[in-house]
Nucleic acid binder design. Structure first.
Lengths: 343, 343
DNA sequence: CTGAAAGCGCTTACAG
DNA sequence: CTGAAAGCGCTTACAG
């Protein structure tokens, strides 16, 4: 942190060279229409001759605003569900890119920060360098999040329904219901069901699990829950182990598309066909879901929209509008071949 | 940009409450061991009671360093090669995540910025808010890049071999040679070849094209080049059009894995089997390449490493070490089923 | 070991 | 329309 930028050209040198004051230079930089045309041109010329670039730090200090929004997420090794390859980009990456796009539209830059779960200290430190914060669900628990949001503009991305802090989330409940009803009431009327679930601590996972249990209980179907351990070395391996130890179900409902892909692989290694012998479903509808073999039946989450809405809510708050209530976007069942219900 | 942070607690209030001076508070914040234990404790207590967080802007102004590194890339709509779905995460996302990881290890944060091609103004403006910049190849041309790098710490990510500025890149030449030799000299000895290539303006694409032409010329094989237009609405559509208009080749060498996946789809829609009727290869070896049908023969680029090396080079430079020469990482041929050379 | 004071490079009332 | 000056909240010689 002790590295120096090279000698920078300051507003003072521009003022001197253009024969004006720093006030005028500042006005020109900021597009104040009050500056007389000839003065403006003189200043602009000096700026380009000197290669002047305003210091973001000085500007930020003076304006009490950095023009930066922060996106805080869990570092990869703490993700609850991940496939074999640490390089897989998915839900989170799409959200990051979309957030950057939307931030830029509002004149902000996006700062990335991957943290350990519950690392309040790092999040608090970020507070000193950005104007607002967007936090992924698993970063802080509800209490810590509320404590932060009380004194700093923050939105909870994919957070828990009903939180005090503004939450932007997708309707997990409706998505799971549509999926479960399709599987339990559809052409196959599955009764022997396994669900690979994520940890209860992740809001979206908890919501999905609850919805699944409600739908299955109403039909008197017992769902076996298989947990993917946080930091496990890969879904395919974990699923293979369970398959070897337990009776094979008719359908495996997976926590996300990546795990579904791993599950298909694990089933095939046991000589089972998908969907002929076992149906498999995913969640998220990442881009690749339609291209794998078989194409995945899944539930689409509007990740791009979710991220854009989170940024917009934050910007509204920074613009002085009152804090938004919860923002819930719809999910959508996408039926493809992996559930065996279409040819 | 005129939004205000709420009233922040400053170092002055901490000093007053702890009965010390702002110098001492500053020393405590920065872990100066010279501060006497009892004083330190008093200050720490005041900090936590007041919820003090140092202002990044003030600190940055004073230190002449922001602690932020910038990653500049082309906004999505300007990408040369992209599949149908704008949400696909790939090479660039993996690079961003890896850069964030490595930046954090060195005590920096990563700022994202998606720009239009050639947008020097935006890049220059960024210069005021970060300590160093990592630019994707297509953002600026070599001249603009060198102009920037002369006065500001910058590395060129996947840039042109031989540039004056520090370039971090993968060995495209070796990767393409290995692939082309496998196809032209391997079991099938293909002679009727199509290559779907990216724009010459992208350094990696130009390098690959050159290597392919050299290998094929040496064997007297003529390669038909199909160009994927920047901003085209999708590889599958473009490929379908060419397939309808020209004789079907024995093998289609694709510019990346996403295009390969689109190509497989387009071929199938014409009733052609892959690899039985036409072989297809990709490039990059994104995570999904092994899971699609058929699994893709491709060339692996060490994207994570590339990003980490770029950040490290930048940090070395900021630490006062001299500027690095070009950094070239190896690529690797990965043979799977899509080329038809293995069962 | 500690404090008073200058300085980092901007923005913005305020006065003219 | 323009400038002098104060202020944003830190760090860091310098003196003690």
């Amino acid at each position: 942190m002790s590295r120096r930028q090279q000698d920078r050209v300051t507003i003072y040198e521009v003022a001197k060279r253009s024969g004006s004051s720093i006030s005028t230079v500042s006005r020109v930089i900021n597009g104040d229409p009050a500056v007389r045309q000839d003065n403006r041109e003189r200043v602009l010329r000096a700026i380009s001759e000197l290669g002047f670039v305003p210091s973001g730090a000085a500007r930020g200090l003076s304006r009490r605003s950095t023009g930066i929004l922060g996106f805080v997420f869990l570092r990869e090794e703490y993700h609850a569900t991940r496939p074999e390859d640490p390089e897989w980009p998915g839900y989170l990456d799409v959200a990051m890119r979309a957030a950057e796009r939307e931030a830029e539209r509002s004149g902000y830059s996006l700062l990335l920060s991957g943290v350990r779960p519950g690392d309040e200290a790092t999040v608090t430190a970020l507070t000193g360098r950005v104007d607002g914060l967007m936090l992924m669900d698993e970063v802080l628990d509800e209490e810590a999040l509320d404590r932060l949001a009380e004194r700093f503009p923050a939105v909870w991305f994919a957070g828990r329904a009903g939180a005090r802090t503004t939450v932007v989330r997708a309707d997990q409940d409706a998505g799971v219901r549509a999926l479960a009803e399709h599987l339990l009431d559809g052409p196959h009327r599955f009764t022997d069901v396994v669900a690979i679930v994520g940890p209860e601590a992740v809001s979206d996972h908890a919501a999905r699990r609850r919805a699944l249990e409600q739908v299955s209980a109403a039909r008197d179907v017992r769902v076996r829950l298989w947990t993917v351990e946080p930091g496990s070395s890969g879904a395919a391996g974990a699923v293979a182990t369970r398959l070897a130890a337990e009776p094979t179900p008719e359908v495996i409902i997976c926590v996300n598309d990546e795990v579904a892909i791993g599950t298909v692989t694990a089933l095939r290694e046991r000589g089972l066909r998908v969907p002929a012998d076992v149906a498999v479903t995913g969640f998220d509808d990442v881009w690749i879901a339609r291209y794998v073999d078989p194409p995945l039946t899944t539930v689409r989450q509007p990740v791009t929209d979710l991220a854009a809405q989170a940024v917009r809510s934050l910007v509204r708050r920074l613009d002085g509008d009152s804090t938004d209530g919860p923002i819930v976007l719809p999910t959508q069942l996408v039926v493809r071949r992996s559930c065996g219900c279409v040819p």
